[in-house]
Amino acid sequence: MAADDREVLTMTNPVGTNPVGTNPVGTNPAPAQPAVVMRDVGKAFAARRILDDFALTIARGEFVALLGRSGSGKTTLLRILAELDTVDEGTVLAPRNRSVVFQEPRLVPSERVWRNVLLVLPRRESTLARAQEALAEVNLADHARAWPHTLSGGEAQRVALARALVHRPDLLLLDEPFAALDALTRLRPQALVHELWHRHRPAVLLVTHDVDEALRLADRVVVLTDGKVGLDLRVDLPRPSEGTGSRFDDLRSQLLAELGVARPASPA
């Protein structure tokens, strides 16, 4: 219990030091309460250790981006939090009410869009109204009765987002949700994710390989290196960030260095 408290404290300290003016929300929700606690987590696939003595805490309502090289175990980490994979050792605490957006939309092809959004609920009028509401939030209200195969990649991914948000999750897990979209198409759903996070305030773990995306959207960027947190950066930028400025460049080169993308060292 004591170890738990200490961890939460070290993690939330930067929030306290954050200048209030840079936080778009203004009022921080009780910062000490964690939504995710991972301690001493070990996970191996056939003798290859993916997570090694891994620890991560995410506060309630916090938006964390997870970066890492391909094959570093980002998806594995997310699947553990989604209860789709099990850990070999360690402790993982997560809220019961979780949602996932996978890299692919994973819509059920035999169900119309609005039924996909409310997969668990029975087929009723009230259900339809609720699905309509969720679809309106992702600007797809008029696609409620469409079949999934008629949607474009971006639309399908937005339906997946609506499906993830309709139950007002306490933890939203996003596994490179926009990786399949081109750089231009990506901008709108990115803004949408930020807006919906701002409105509903779930804790978010966004797995991405896009450093700029991580910096634009997240409170905090964590880099997964060799099964551990290699870098844990607080993004002290006004948001939504334009993705420019010297502080942005500074954070970005720190992240790129951690990811092993060679860049000339900044003289500053």
Partner: peptide, 10 residues
Amino acid sequence: RLIEVGRVFG
């Protein structure tokens, strides 16, 4: 992968 969706959404 669809079965996983079912599991995630309970």
